[in-house]
Design a protein around this nucleic acid. Sequence first.
DNA 1: AGATATTTGTTCGTATGTATT
DNA 2: TAATACATACGAACAAATATC
Lengths: 263, 263
Amino acid sequence: MERNTLSPATTLPADASRMSRPQRAAAAIKDWVVERGMRPGDRLPGESELMAHFGMAKGTIREALRVLEAQGLIRTRTGPGGGAFVNEVTEARARALLGNYFYFNEISIRDIYELRHALEPLLVAQLAGTLGEGQLEQLAAVMTAYETPPETIDEAEQHRMAELDFHALLASFSENALLRFQCRFLFSLLKELTICRKIYRREIPGFRKAGRDYQSRLLQALREGDSGAAKAIMRAHLNAAQTTMEQQESVVLRQFLSESEER
Amino acid sequence: MERNTLSPATTLPADASRMSRPQRAAAAIKDWVVERGMRPGDRLPGESELMAHFGMAKGTIREALRVLEAQGLIRTRTGPGGGAFVNEVTEARARALLGNYFYFNEISIRDIYELRHALEPLLVAQLAGTLGEGQLEQLAAVMTAYETPPETIDEAEQHRMAELDFHALLASFSENALLRFQCRFLFSLLKELTICRKIYRREIPGFRKAGRDYQSRLLQALREGDSGAAKAIMRAHLNAAQTTMEQQESVVLRQFLSESEER
DNA sequence: AGATATTTGTTCGTATGTATT
DNA sequence: TAATACATACGAACAAATATC
């Protein structure tokens, strides 16, 4: 059974005419690797061989390899037996690269929660009844991180991060790689967006406890294989969280505006 | 109002210790750009200045710039007034980079349609009543590409691509950048996955006409601002399409298996 | 149209670092 | 410890592209 699901050439823009030489070289090496059906861990030819094969100087080849490295497609090691090796793109790197795109595309809390509403109820409905005891325990273990009320702002922030970890862990259990990634990307946004970071450092009475309650009930439904209940609990949880987050968002924005006026 | 929604440093792995020099340089340049709040179009210092500033040789700096170029964050021009310029990451590049991740994570037609079911009904429900006449006309224009039955296999394939373009165009009208991207990424997968490409080159009686009917009714609902109807039509459309695609998938796979046995 | 200045792009030679044997 | 095989880094020179006059 063939494992390469994507066609080779189409993975990059490929407007060959106005690409710089190193970029072309990177594309060429990539295609060369794909054609050969090389798998993660396989070693690419050394720099000198690549120079000979593609008729380009060392510097150009090196720049090409760096391009592939930046995309997460290869890693290189020095020393004997070293060289460039095919590398499986990690989820973390994929998230980071995609994050660059949204650096320029303003997104709001509402945008994120719209997606959460669309994806997470589906996620838990699928997961209900399929999780092993070990997985359920992992989820419970994450929840212990915010068992007790936070005593400092820093601790409160950590709790919020751990709550997101709970959702991210849940998503990682999905069989659907697309669903898994898209959910987990949303959580990385919720962790990194500056507006969110500001919100996490505010007191929100009752929020932590309510979240834990939802998650406990969710675990119960997942254990019992009750898809409908899991979906309903998740929906309610998201509604509550979204309301709080959007309220806090407006508070933070007002704060920011009044601070601006003070100058 | 601040425009940078993501925190600077967190956008790349940043395990500085075991990063290569050019990678560190790339990260440093990136942070330097972010700190300065530089916007797309702004010019970075020339290579020689960067060499001086970061105390690295030309080759190293160039490799760093290539890394940033590969991520779509800069573009470079030669000649006087040339140099490296901050660049807005295009959606196409973001899709391509994310595609690399899924090159190693097998995804099925079912996976994709699960996401479509979650996202596209939401999309059209939001869009209902918000589209201008120009946008509705654009959608209708795409539909003319598969107005008449295809006469060759190539033409049939083109029709399928145009149908996907219809959905992609629809998604591009969403105000939600996340929803927009996630939908359009799914369509790029449907265009590029080898299994899909094989399916598109098969005769599927009635499929084209059924698709057009759905889309016509969808346009009507969108024009009338009937969210419920738009959602329902999209759901029905997706159900039908998914059934067909999965049927064809099993046919293609059986074909592939029997071809393997012949050897 | 053509000369020129500026800036990136490419190459080569050499030296250094690093991990294996 | 030493030899090796390989990537890594540097510096200088040259080539190509492109704006401006």
